[in-house]
Simulated assay, not measured.
Amino acid sequence: MKLAMIGLGKMGYNLSQNLLDHGHELVAYDISEDNVKNICSEGAIAAYSLEEVVKQLESPRIVWMMVPAGQITENVLSSLGEMLETGDIVIDGGNSNYKDSIRRGNELQEKGIHFLDCGTSGGVDGARNGACLMIGGDNEIFNKIEPIFKDVTVENGYFYSGKLGSGHYLKMIHNGIEYGMMQSIAEGFDILEKSEFSFDYEGVARVWNNGSVIRSWLMELTETAFSKDPKLDGIRGIMNSSGEGKWTVETALDLQVPAPVITLSLLMRYRSLEDDTFTGKVVAALRNEFGGHEVISK
């Protein structure tokens, strides 16, 4: 099939290579001209503006977006909404909030433009060699372009999740689960680090990933990380977050679903951003006031 890829960052570029490997004709656009030139050297068709993207596709057009969630996605979709025609299809493969995806899809539908919200997992390696996709939107439109999703995913690695918004909702919950899994792995290794034993953490991760009940791709990545830096001395323990964990917790609160593991894993990420918290100061001061407990001065 012929389609366009908008956004050639780490995910979009590797996904473009994946599409080209499977024989798809690809029009590629990114704000970085170097990225466009690089992917074109591998067989893509260059576009240096959204207008060029639209002009180089025949109706009904298929446009796959892999751009950062939020205002950038909003801006790109707003522009595309003025350029595309009835029957054209837009896929948002970024980590958009599902509520935004429902609104955007409805706005495009008013113009006769179809919209699929596509949660994308598997990281950069997955985008290149076989991703995991969760796709929401009109079932008829999904069926029409299903061969694209089948080509770029691993076996059983794509799923039509239902109505508009369900793809990004599913990816949001997926990422919330991921927060909890990563936090539990990190806490386990932290306890090992503070023990009386001297463990080879690469070896620990390797044995845990072979035959144990906690084997996983995350444990495989843990092994890889420790193979590069046995004590992780080269990095700081700052855990950034991209939004999906927060949205998962907010949704759990709205639905009155207890989700303590995901919630605490999100809060631990926030805690990692501070070296000396005001919360800690208040608690230390209170313990000193009521019990005369020692405080540590600067």
Rank of each mutant, 00 (worst) to 15 (best):
K2E: 15
K2S: 10
M5Q: 08
I6W: 10
I6D: 05
L8G: 01
G9E: 11
M11W: 11
M11R: 04
L15I: 09
L20T: 02
L20N: 04
G23V: 03
E25H: 02
V27Q: 00
Y29P: 04
I31L: 14
I31T: 07
N35I: 00
K37A: 08
N38S: 14
I39H: 01
C40E: 14
E42H: 11
G43M: 03
A44C: 03
A46E: 12
A46R: 07
A47Y: 01
Y48C: 04
S49E: 08
V53R: 06
V54A: 06
V54K: 13
L57G: 10
E58D: 14
P60G: 07
P60M: 05
I62E: 02
I62A: 03
M65Q: 06
M66R: 00
P68L: 03
G70Q: 03
Q71W: 00
E74N: 15
S78T: 13
L80E: 04
E82L: 10
V90L: 10
G93H: 07
G93A: 12
N95F: 06
S96E: 13
N97Y: 13
K99N: 10
S101Q: 01
S101V: 02
R103T: 05
R104E: 05
E107V: 11
Q109Y: 14
G112T: 04
L116D: 10
L116N: 10
D117C: 02
D117T: 01
G119Q: 05
G119C: 03
S121N: 08
V124P: 06
D125T: 02
G126Q: 04
A127S: 10
A127F: 03
I135A: 03
G136P: 04
N139F: 02
E140F: 08
I141S: 03
F142D: 00
E146W: 01
P147L: 05
K150A: 01
T153R: 01
Y158L: 00
L164C: 10
H168M: 06
Y169G: 00
L170P: 07
H174F: 09
N175Q: 12
G176P: 12
Y179K: 12
Y179C: 08
M181Y: 08
M182S: 10
M182D: 01
S184A: 15
D190Y: 08
D190C: 05
E193N: 12
K194H: 13
S195Q: 13
E196T: 08
F197S: 06
S198K: 10
D200Y: 13
Y201A: 00
A205P: 03
G211D: 13
G211T: 00
E220Q: 14
L221I: 12
E223Y: 01
P230Q: 10
K231F: 08
D233Y: 01
M239Y: 09
N240G: 14
S241P: 04
G245D: 11
K246T: 15
W247Y: 09
D254P: 08
L255V: 00
V257N: 14
P258T: 06
A259S: 14
T263L: 06
L264R: 15
L266V: 15
R271F: 13
S272P: 04
S272L: 01
L273I: 03
L273N: 06
D275M: 11
G280W: 12
V282W: 10
A284L: 08
E289N: 05
G291Q: 15
H293N: 14
E294K: 15
E294P: 07
V295S: 15
I296V: 15
